[in-house]
């Protein structure tokens, strides 16, 4: 794409793009750090994730302000308009990822106190790796302007959902085995749910990024039945 006749317009768009990339990198780092803190009961690391969230919030506010100012000043059209509106939406999804990572970090202390079955760490770790791969992937495809890869990435979210269902079942089993596990397992369940939600936000970002790049919307995804609901009903 060529340059604008007004060069400061290009600089303003670039700045917004840079903020999205920064927020993307930060969301990946926060997701990684929060799950590491959870699996290793590392309270110091958890604290760092919690303080990183304020940076994330500040970046989102800056992006919003810059985007609103740009719309008012330049009245962007076509792909410029899509990229500004897309950036606002992606930033709000990235900010939510930051919140969810912070929430995982906040639970580190509570989980650490209980006698957590160590084998649990393994399935949450596997889920976290999947989620992390998605977060890093969406940022990379956005930076490289690769819409085709985003289509594939969106479909990958299903793996996280499957993994979440198996973590859910596993935690249920531990709680039934020994009621003393209930407190820590409940916290872990929330953590797993947070990871699954992060995956959903990645899906949103992928859809927005695809629209920014191509101008067309990805087809509506079939709503999937949440299997944990079936399990819950069957158990009651």
């Amino acid at each position: 794409m060529g340059e604008h006749t007004v060069s400061s317009f290009d600089e303003e768009l670039e700045h917004i793009d840079r903020l999205i990339r920064d927020m993307g990198d930060l969301s990946g780092a926060m997701t990684r750090a929060s799950t590491n803190a959870l699996l290793e009961s590392d309270n110091a690391l958890a604290q760092r994730v919690i303080s990183d969230d304020t940076i994330m919030d500040a970046k989102q506010r800056e992006l919003d302000e810059r985007a609103i100012t740009l719309i008012a000043k330049r009245q962007p059209m076509a792909q410029d308009l899509r990229s500004v509106v897309g950036a606002i939406r992606m930033a709000s999804d990235l900010e939510r990822i930051g919140d969810l990572a912070k929430n995982i970090a906040k639970r580190v202390g509570a989980v650490g106190q209980g006698a957590t079955p160590r084998s649990l760490a393994h399935s949450i770790d596997a889920m976290a790796s999947l989620v992390l791969q998605q977060v890093n992937g969406v940022v990379e495809h956005y930076v490289r302007r690769n819409p085709e890869a985003l289509v594939h990435l969106r479909d990958e979210d299903e793996k996280i959902d499957i993994q979440y269902t198996s973590v859910f079942r596993e935690l249920l089993t531990y709680m039934m085995e020994d009621p003393r596990n209930i407190t820590s397992c409940t916290h872990l369940l929330f953590c797993a749910k947070n990871l699954e939600r992060i995956g959903d936000h990645v899906t949103n970002i992928a859809e927005n990024a695809y629209y920014v790049m191509t101008g067309s919307q990805l087809p509506v995804q079939r709503p999937k039945l949440d299997e944990t609901q079936v399990t819950a009903e069957a158990g009651s």
Partner: peptide, 8 residues
Amino acid sequence: QDYITGRF
């Protein structure tokens, strides 16, 4: 695209 976005 170029005209409406101010690129020429």
